[in-house]
Design a protein around this nucleic acid. Structure first.
Length: 567
RNA sequence: AGGGGCGUAGCUCAGUGGUAGAGCAGCGGCCUUUUAAGCCGAAGGUCGUGGGUUCGAUCCCCACCGCCCCUACCA
């Protein structure tokens, strides 16, 4: 999105540039192509801070062209990456490298320069690995050495040469030929401390990735995790599918949506808050096992474990119920931990998460188990199950909360027993669930899409998996009775909350009326899973470009259609 | 949304009610096995933005912008 220099114009500058102001000539219709941040009032010539260094490097670029080198050549035929050189030749001794020379062509970004007059050392990175180069005037020749002198930290170069070992025994390329592959007009962050400012790390993620190895590793590992997820489900005969991200009717979760608009249909659409209802339509359609790795959008708060757009895995399997899914989920997490981290025991902050052992507690058991001592007496499960029991306990909890400066429940009288049970669980138990724990048998009142338990209609066959105090997964035996489903949808609409659906998704009810097999389905928060497996404690560390407010203070203007013709 | 913290050179950070400092990067010079290379020299700043108090504000006060933390919201 940064400025694009029209080639003709750029060429003219490179050939004629002596003073910087030649370059800043404006008014050319070519500038119509110049995309700039919306908060900038006019289309300035391509220039960025630090201006002195930007201009300095631009000057060098024109000098490089004057030497006859292409500024931005098309390609470079490499034989090895920096990583491959390390992997393949690290064991070769200096004698072996002399006796049996290894020739390489390798490309990378310059990250360190140590010139010594007529020779120099440099480090480049390629594929995340550092590689040292040694460049000597009397080896590469006057012309190439002149080019080398015009290079800066951040430039991308390609070299050819052979491997040798220096006095300090570092595997190094003895450079014979050198070419510039891309000039960096802006400097890299400081070489010892890198880019530490969190805001800048997210806004300029490209710099973060160059400079902070941990950041790079997180996203490589994230990709491995996604790959293993696909492997896990593909090998179990699941079909990967893609369902719409723009929904005419809200559904599949309780959340506040983003709204967008389709012009031709003149139709408002919601960005999906969950793919659930579409995936179950597919099971109706005979795709008995489906999964989708999907982006969801929820217009809600942002904190260490919430982003407005986040990635979920959802999968559905016909002829199963939630207890089978809990077993599958244990396998899933254990396999991922082993494959990604090499062990079922994974360090997460001060904790060691053991993916080899999962606890299972009903929601009512969890409330009883973690009931605060100061709010004694602890309830028992039958107290929670009794009509009005959760309300009595919520009131008891509120007495305790007010006495201890905690936030009491606001709407004890308005909420149902089921809703209060959910609230109690969240307040009392959730934060304690560090080791993998399934909480199961959720109240029906907070589970509009799950099937009730045969022996207790106040509860559903639903579970959530908690690890490190975070909700990681949510699964249930899918409600497939269309009459029951319609009734629960209507109840949601009648509630009229901002998070509730505004209308009943009758097509989904119609789909159920064609017959959904007994099906179990589950969603897994991929961002949170990546957090766990990379020891990251903020979701934005595992999302490449987390949402930040627009830089520059002024709200971004929509791009004007006529801006190109305005002059 | 409420409370707290932060914003100083491109980067990482010091600092003070009296016109601002270091290291790295950059610039000029020296240097043919260094690796935080070294040595010499010069430069670089509307101290987030806008108001106010003051003889004088980067510092004190207010508002705004952005980021972080806590709380709230959040299946």
């Amino acid at each position: 999105m940064s400025g694009i220099i029209p080639p003709v114009f750029a060429r003219g500058v490179f050939l004629t540039l002596v003073e910087a102001d030649r370059y800043t000539a404006r008014g050319s219709s070519n500038w119509r192509n110049c995309r700039r941040p919306a908060y900038r009032k006019e289309c300035d010539p391509l220039e960025f801070e630090p201006l002195d260094q930007f201009q300095q490097r631009r000057k060098k670029l024109s000098e490089i062209e004057a030497l006859g080198h292409s500024a931005y050549p098309r390609k470079f035929a490499w034989t090895h990456t920096a990583r491959q050189i390390g992997e393949q030749f690290e064991t070769r001794t200096a004698e072996q490298l002399t006796a049996d020379p290894v020739n390489v062509r390798v490309a990378g970004r310059i990250i360190a320069l140590r010139p010594h007059g007529k020779a120099a050392f440099a480090h480049v990175t390629g594929d995340g690995v550092r590689l040292q180069l040694y460049i000597k005037l009397d080896v590469v020749g006057e012309q190439a050495y002149q080019l080398f002198r015009l290079l800066d930290l951040g430039d991308i170069i390609g070299i050819s040469g052979h491997l040798f070992r220096t006095k300090t025994n570092e595997l190094t390329v003895w450079v014979e030929k050198l070419e510039l592959l891309s000039k960096a007009l802006l400097p890299l962050p400081e070489k010892w401390h890198g880019l530490a400012d969190v805001e800048q790390r997210f806004r300029r993620r490209y710099l973060d990735l160059i400079v902070n190895e941990r950041s790079r590793e997180i996203f490589i590992r994230r990709a491995q995790i996604i790959r293993e997820i696909r492997h896990f489900f593909d090998s179990r005969s699941y079909l990967e599918v893609e369902t719409p991200m723009m929904h005419p009717i809200l559904g599949g979760a309780t959340a506040r949506p983003f709204v967008t608009h389709h012009n031709t249909f003149d139709m408002d659409l919601y960005l999906r808050i969950a793919p659930e209802l579409y995936l179950k339509r597919l099971v109706v359609g005979g795709l008995d096992r489906v999964y989708e790795i999907n982006r969801n959008f929820r217009n809600e708060g942002i904190d260490a474990i919430h982003q407005p757009e986040f990635t979920m895995l959802e999968f559905y399997q016909a002829y199963s119920d939630y207890s089978e899914l809990m077993d599958l989920t244990e396998d899933f997490f254990r396999v991922l931990a082993e494959k990604i981290c090499g062990s079922t025991k994974v360090k997460f902050g001060d904790d060691e998460i053991d993916f080899g052992h999962f606890e299972r507690l009903t929601m009512r058991e969890a409330i009883c188990k973690f009931w605060p001592e100061a709010a004694a007496p602890a309830p028992n499960a039958s107290e929670l199950a009794a009509p009005g029991g959760p309300r009595t306990l919520a009131e008891r909890y509120n007495v305790f909360a007010r006495a201890h400066g905690l936030v009491p429940f606001a709407n004890v009288t308005k909420l149902s027993d089921g809703e209060l049970t959910g609230e109690l669980f969240e307040q009392v138990a959730e934060a304690h669930l560090v080791q993998p724990t399934f909480i199961y048998d959720f109240p029906t009142a907070i589970s509009p899409l799950s099937k009730q338990k045969p022996d207790d209609p106040s509860l559903t066959e639903r579970f959530e998996l908690f690890i490190a105090g975070m909700e990681l997964a949510n699964g249930f035996s899918e409600l497939n009775d269309p009459f029951d489903q319609e009734g629960r949808f209507r109840a949601q609409v009648e509630k009229g909350d901002p998070e509730s659906p505004k209308e009943v998704d009758t097509d989904y009810i119609r789909a159920l009326s064609h017959g959904l097999p007994p099906t179990a389905g589950e969603g897994v928060g991929i961002d949170r899973l990546v957090m766990l497996l990379t020891d990251s404690h903020a979701i934005r560390e595992v999302v490449l470009f987390p949402l930040l407010r627009t830089e520059g203070g002024e709200p971004a203007e929509p791009p004007a259609e006529t801006s190109g013709e305005a002059k």
